[in-house]
Design a protein around this nucleic acid. Sequence first.
DNA 1: CGTGCAGTTGACGACACTCAACCCTGGTGG
DNA 2: CCACCAGGGTTGAGTGTCGTCAACTGCACG
Lengths: 228, 228
Amino acid sequence: MEIGHLHKALGGYPLFQGMAIDEISSLLDGHRFRNVRHHQHLYQAGEPADSFAIVLVGAFKLVRSTPKGEDTIVYFATPGEVIGGLLMQKSGGAYPISAVALGPSTALTIPKSTFVNAWQKNIQIQSKLMSTLYSRMCVLQDDKVGSKQSLQQRVAMLLLSLLDKRPDCGPNRIPIPLTRQEIADTVGASVESVIRCMSELSQQGFIQTEEKQIEILRTDKIAEILKA
Amino acid sequence: MEIGHLHKALGGYPLFQGMAIDEISSLLDGHRFRNVRHHQHLYQAGEPADSFAIVLVGAFKLVRSTPKGEDTIVYFATPGEVIGGLLMQKSGGAYPISAVALGPSTALTIPKSTFVNAWQKNIQIQSKLMSTLYSRMCVLQDDKVGSKQSLQQRVAMLLLSLLDKRPDCGPNRIPIPLTRQEIADTVGASVESVIRCMSELSQQGFIQTEEKQIEILRTDKIAEILKA
DNA sequence: CGTGCAGTTGACGACACTCAACCCTGGTGG
DNA sequence: CCACCAGGGTTGAGTGTCGTCAACTGCACG
């Protein structure tokens, strides 16, 4: 990717909106492009946290491993979002979670030193970072509120929330390739239960999946499930 | 409370640590003390968000109401913590959650204008705010990871995490008065189930409750439950 | 004295987890 | 060419945890 293209792309994201080219440049000091293949790691939990990243293409799941070897997906990061930004203020330390690509993805990694030297001193970017954090926090809170609901409702909620993420795969198509296992890891259920749940939704003609791409045929019906 | 005392108290919190008196003063412009009785609201969800608060005494539960009239507790804020700070960057808007006192509590409310004029321009406080947010985020993520575990494990996890909050009620005593309902609202279970769970812990001699004060007699045993 | 809240206990039922088996696909190596 | 395997998806049977409903206690309050 060209530097010119890069700036254009970044300027379109809320994080950098309204910033001058050279201001953005100073925030990217020492950046590197990382192309990551499907299901490969961008960051591994436990590695020393010496950089953070901005998603450019594709998506990443942020995964926490449980003691028992199971995984829990805590967040899906899509283009324009920051991964690991919160860690940069801590001295030393390791990534607490892993970042794994979903589909071929690319990210812009930025060294910790740039965060300390540029990001931390830039009021504007700090504010923006805070507001992205705020929305991520809200998502987590919504999850917590929803955790009492039935599996079907939790799945429906997930589908709708993923649909809101930059719809660039055609209308009502979730822009992230997901296995049933990953859905289960997200909503906190077993694979089999998720399969049963989604089979039912398919039979009713509400959704349709092919090649790990999920298409929502009846957004209204899915939304209706939530209200029940 | 005296202004002198106030500064001393605030200076002890991580948020203001290492700041000069007059720097702290500028951050408190327009502050008001709010004494709130047990189970009274500091903020109501839906009210216009024109101030944020720092907890000084007692504790507050941050509550989200579900459509069905049930409550979910998303966080416990104890002395030194900020309530509603994230909201202040958004223009307009209302509180998305309610803040309710647990036991007689007092908070320092600070008008939104002070946030915009002082907090948002102060790099140091922004960094500190971010790192408190980071830890709050981690708590929420841990919750999500733990949501697959058994009820007993979730309760044990809650008890231990509350124990970490400024132990000023004697050793191994949770410094917040909690009803079983509130515990249920936190771990996402029914009251009855929580009662059964805690009765069992009592019978085994691991915990003891009197007057809504929970004392943990066998921290080791409680921690053991988590590892199972 | 009635009312409301917090705590408690029991019976019953449902939703979801576990375990097991099976199909299909694509890739790899003999 | 075929055998083998791994990963993803699917289905069924059995089990168990937890939610729901109902009833009852003790206590504080007006």
